[in-house]
């Protein structure tokens, strides 16, 4: 769609994920390990990947297709990760896809019974891209444990849609599909949370961002790349190189 097809670097990243079909709307599915990503993926695509209650069950990145509201979607089930700060292969893979694979919408699935740790990843994804939908999965387990979540407040805090679901029973999935549809049609007003760091970090980010302006074009999220650079993240260079050398 539009912008995403123009850059051959991006299509290269997509090729890495075996996405050749550019007519479909590409979605990314990210989340902590064992939050029900595969369950939701199965539900959406009708595929039957086995799921189980242990972290790391999905080891292959799987992709599937579905149609909703006359739109054709391709959804990539990324490996479960705690963070995008890329110290492991899985994290690098997920980060590259969310950042450089330009999915139309990134769905971050979170475990409602363990929201604090899950929000860490959600906030990190929000630093990369605006088009994020947060799924609160395992709402039944949360209820059973006496955990109540104020969805409205969470939405206000994160600035993107938050959809409570029970993936294994398919509850809330329709709402999610509608939210995806609305986001693709740009019907939703987004005001995504952008974390402010302390003064020193912010100043360093600004400095580096300015320098990046001379090197990278507007397709890149420079604030985020700057942030990665001051975090001495060398793997990001490899990814940028892959893209630059194919432009």
């Amino acid at each position: 769609m539009g912008l995403t097809n123009q850059s051959s670097g991006i299509s290269l990243i997509r090729k890495k994920f075996n996405i050749e079909d550019n007519n479909k709307i590409v979605l990314a599915l990210a989340g902590n390990p064992n939050t029900g990503k595969s369950t939701l993926f199965n539900h959406l695509t009708g595929l039957n990947q086995h799921t189980g209650n242990w972290p790391g069950k999905t080891v292959d990145n799987a992709q599937g297709f579905f149609t909703h509201n006359d739109k054709e979607y391709l959804i990539v089930d990324l490996p479960g990760i705690y963070s995008l700060l890329a110290k492991s292969k899985d994290e690098e893979l997920a980060r590259d896809f969310i950042c450089f694979g330009s999915p139309e919408v990134t769905i971050v699935i979170t475990d409602a019974t363990c929201l604090e740790r899950n929000l860490n990843l959600a906030i990190q994804v929000l630093e990369i891209t605006n088009k994020v939908i947060i799924c609160l999965n395992l709402m039944d387990e949360a209820e059973r444990k006496g955990i109540k979540i104020d969805i409205k407040k969470l939405e206000k805090n994160l600035g993107v849609p938050v959809i409570p679901i029970i993936a294994r029973e398919g509850i809330g999935v329709n709402k999610l599909l509608n939210a995806i549809n609305d986001m693709v049609e740009e019907k939703i007003k987004l005001n995504p949370l952008r974390l402010k760091y302390d003064e020193f970090i912010e100043k360093t980010i600004k400095n580096i961002e300015k320098k990046l302006d001379n090197i990278l074009d507007e397709n890149f999220n420079k604030r985020w790349i700057a942030l990665r650079l001051i975090d001495s993240d060398k793997s990001i260079l490899k990814s940028i190189n892959t893209i630059l050398s194919n432009e």
């Binding site: 705690y82 963070s83 700060l85 110290k87 604090e116 740790r117 860490n120």
Partner: peptide, 11 residues
Amino acid sequence: SNNRRRLLDLG
């Protein structure tokens, strides 16, 4: 080293 970051990432 890397271990530190791994533990930080877990919260």
